[in-house]
Amino acid sequence: MKYKAVKIGLTSLVLAMTFGGLLYTTMAEGTEYYKHVDEVMAQPDAWYGKKLQLHGFVVPNSIMKRKNTLDYQFQVQSNGHVVNATYTGVVPDTFKSDSEVVLKGVLTADGFTTQPNGVMAKCPSKYEAKPGGATAPSGKY
């Protein structure tokens, strides 16, 4: 009985350590920081080069598109902090002035470089309008 317990204990230990190790190594390259624009832009140099998911609102009328290309330049803000962002590719339908977006990419001194397919516009409430949140209706009845 005792022998069995030791065996099981050792096996679980080895398994747990293997998984822990694997998890740690895969985690290092898989993780991204989820930040709001103001959190990042309060001290931008601390975030240079780190993989980010940047949450903010598109500054009204800041979206510019280079003619005959899919290159976009726009600004994203939250709580008064603004960052310039670039993106090449097709943007989602809901990406427009003032829409709430999450950008995946890297911050550099020149601004935020969004990775391919890295623009995610928040859906107009898939299930529920957030009480008090950004998707609360300003509606007309």
């Binding site: 003032d98 950004a134 209706p137 300003s138």
Partner: peptide
């Protein structure tokens, strides 16, 4: 559709 509310900051909201 609910429209996004924009003017105020999240805290104020």
């Amino acid at each position: 559709d609910p429209r996004l509310e924009k003017v105020t900051s999240p805290e104020a909201r």
